[in-house]
Amino acid sequence: MPPIIEVSDLTKEFTRPDVRPGRFAGTRSLFTRARKVTTAVDGISFQIGEGELIGFLGPNGAGKSTTIKMLTGILVPTSGTVTVAGQVPWRDRRRNARSIGAVFGQRTQLWYDLPLRDSFEIIRDLYSMDPATYRTRLGEFTEILDLDEFIDTPVRSLSLGQRMRGDLVAAMLYAPPILYLDEPTVGLDVVAKGKIREFVAEINAGRRTTVILTTHDMDDVERLCRRVVIIDHGKILYEGDVEMLKAQYVTSRDIVVHCTDFDATTITSPFAQVVSADAFKATLRFDPERTAVPKVVHDLTSRYPITDLSVLEPDLEDVIRQLYTERTPNAR
């Protein structure tokens, strides 16, 4: 996969007026000119291959949005370079605009007072699409995202989930090779999330669109991304495969055992430790590096009349939490 996005040594600093609290702070701020420099993104480098669907993760204020804004050409980097499809986004802004689509979950790019369909038509005209392509594509998208019921409703009257679907279509109508999604599922219900994931998977697999997804929802990541870039305090914490990340950080697995014919608190195992137990259910923890899963399972099933047994998948959410706290001991 040739890289379509190349980021090297990217840095962004912000200068803000330094407000000191205290008596007459308001009056004093009339005259002070003190400034404070904060580094939002601190020399990061990575590459994204063509057709990849990459998760871009990090806690609030980690520098995710700032990075995405530099990739899209909204912000000019303080230093370092970005190339997207061979262009420098902020310098070749117009050409870059045609090769990217973007959805920022918090803000809409639709025309607030007009029906959704009007926004699509304005975008059709702005990007000089031919009518036939526009009709086919809108038809396909309408089908995947069920736009029919609200396409003629003014955007201001749409629910969050409907609006987000509209924004997705608006970003993909002109078939840009790259799509940026910033928190596309935040605040949505399960059904709406499902629809959006289905759509993103479709445009990535079916249309070979490169997708950069920022999210706090680990379900999004598990269902969509193979690779992730995790940043915190403006620096890269981890870059690589999701499975590898889990393997690296998950040092124990849990087995849950259910039984009806005997007291579950009596369960013991030579390979695993009992973490919790009551009359009907026990949870045991073991180290998968030392003991293979089948061995633990076989041992338990051969010695106890167990009605049900399940091996819990490692939880990405836990992994990420562990990663953040480990690398930033004094944060928060």
């Binding site: 909204i74 802004r93 117009r94 050409r95 605009a97 990217i100 803000r107 990007y127």
Partner: peptide, 9 residues
């Protein structure tokens, strides 16, 4: 203005 910067105009 974010959105203006993303459009080809």
């Amino acid at each position: 203005v974010d959105r203006y910067l993303l459009r080809p105009a």
